Structures are given as structure tokens and as C-alpha cells.
Computed example of a mutant assay.
Amino acid sequence: MLVMDDAAIAALGVRAIDLAGPVSRALAAHALGEMLVEPKRMQLAASGAYAIGTHGLWQEQDRAFFHNLVGLDREPVKGARSTYRSAQVLFRSSDAMPLLTIHGNMMSSVLPVVMTLIAAQKFAPQSVEAVSFIGAGLQARLHLDALTAMFPLKRIFSHSRSRNSSQALADYAAARGIPTVICDDPQEAVRGGDIVVSSISESFGVEPFLETGWLKPDALLSSVDMLRPWRGARELLVIADDALQARQMIEAGRVPGVFPIDHELGGLLAGEKPSRKGEPAPVVLFHPGCCAGLFGMASALHEIHELSTER
């Protein structure tokens, strides 16, 4: 059985955009009933330690998949540093042969980026020149690299609770030839972006301070922070990477329920038509986490590795 950590995956030279096609096919397979997956289940201890698990079967591809994540949540343990590690196992389902084990943070970190790219391919404005980042940490940097490869960006806008984080992101963008407008006012940042990526860390318990009314009429909002910092009542098209997972999290009170889910991303990729028509409205991608997406990533990494060893 092949075992890969973050360094081994990096050595393959796989970019987020390289995974968008395989993950799109996995999402569509799930929507069509060809892939069976379970929503994530979570156990949370009073100490802040948590364990999350999910699994799935993709019979047409002769694959089975397990995803597990273990971590420590900062919210119940004030002042402690949040941390997590994930592991995935890919099997050949016809004979239960384990094919690949992945461990580290790459899968969980890159999945939101891949989802954003897939949504951008379908819903971003025709001319994307500016991306706004609300939150300027790891997700902002990963998204910047991926979106720069997809669009001819002329500028980015950045708002963070930490001025140092915004400056670090500006320096990172400058090294790629992209100027940054650092915004003390989040409204300025949101209004500036054709695509808006919000990734407020430790967003659980954060009072909403971002208005959907600030979005451009044709903007794409990718809410990696699961819409916790957002409020507003303007017309939106809200898409989840996993609609059942999203609705369960809303019912459990883990994410706000003020934005009803209109569609699952995989359904739209499989041919479902958007329910809202007429005047342009911002498209919102809500990231509750998606077993089908991780399944598609693991299958693609196994295939890429197999092809690389045949050369």
C-alpha cells in the first residue's frame, strides 16, 4: 500500500487546479447516486478535543474511502492553539485491497481551494480582475496561488483582524506581481472583489460583521468560514459542497441558518439548472466539508502517482 504525507504530495507537483476536474467528476457522481457517502460525524470533548469521520463507496470506480480528522478546538480552550491532523485511506472495493493512505493537512487545507475553483469555473464573472480576501491566513495564500493561475488578476483587496496578517498577504501577492489594497473597513474589501474569499479563523462564536449587500451583483463569494461572519437579506444563490451536511450543521446550530441552501454543487455539475433566474445575484459557495470531494482528491492522487511511476 502506498503511503503519502504532505511532502510526498508536494513532490508530485500537483496543483489545486489539477484536482478540479477529478473532484468535479466525483461531485457529479455523488449527485447522480453513483457514489454513496455519509455526512461527517463529530465527537467533541469538553477539553476541546474532537474527532471527525466519514466514508464512501464509488462502485463504478471500484473504490471505497475513509476520511478521519482529529484535532483540538481553540473555542472551548481559550488561549490554546487550534491544531488538527487528518488521514484518508483509499481501497479497491472489489477485493478490499488498501491502495493509499494519506496523512497530514494537505487534503483538508486544499479541498476548499479546489471547491472555489470549481465554483469559479461555473459562476465567476466573465472578467475577473480583483479578488477580495476577508481573513489573510493560509486559506488566503492558497486561494491566491490557485486563482492567479486561473485569472489575470490585477489587484487584490485584503481585510483582516490583524494588520500584520494583511501586510504578510500583501507581501506574498507582491512577490507574484499583484498589488494589494489593505482595507481597514471590511465593506471596502468586499465591494472591491469580483470573487470574495472569506476565511475568518476560529469563526465559531464570531458575531456577523459582513453584509451580503456589499457584494457586487455578479460576485462569487466562497465562504470557507461557513457563513458565520455574514448577514444580510439580499437575493443570493446559495450552493453547498454537500447540501445534506450543510443542513445537518444548520439544524445542530453549528452554522447560521439565515441563508437557505438552494443547490448542491455536484447537482449543478451534473446538469441541474439553478433555481433562481432573472436579475443577476451573487453566488455563495458554502463549505461545510465534503466527503465526495476528498474521495475525488484521493482517487486522483493515487492515479497521478501510478502514472508517474510508469514513466
Rank of each mutant, 00 (worst) to 15 (best):
G296N: 04
G271L: 06
A292K: 05
G293I: 04
R234Y: 02
D225W: 07
W230Y: 08
R247Q: 15
P260N: 09
S223D: 15
D225A: 07
K216I: 10
A292D: 11
E211T: 03
S275R: 15
L268Y: 08
G267I: 03
V238S: 07
A240V: 04
S223M: 02
F286H: 14
G213C: 12
A233W: 01
L268A: 06
L215P: 11
G266Y: 10
L221K: 10
L285W: 11
K273A: 14
G266F: 06
H287M: 11
P208Q: 05
L269T: 10
W214I: 09
P260W: 09
G253Q: 07
Q245K: 13
A298D: 07
I261K: 02
H263M: 12
F259L: 00
C290Q: 00
F209D: 10
L294W: 12
I261G: 01
R228I: 15
P288H: 08
I239D: 02
G289H: 03
L221V: 13
L221A: 08
D241G: 05
H263V: 10
V238W: 09
L236Y: 05
P280D: 00
L268P: 04
A240R: 05
F209L: 11
Q245H: 12
V258H: 11
L221Y: 03
L236C: 11
L220G: 13
D262W: 02
A298P: 09
F259A: 00
R276L: 14
R231S: 14
M297K: 07
F295K: 13
G296M: 04
E264T: 00
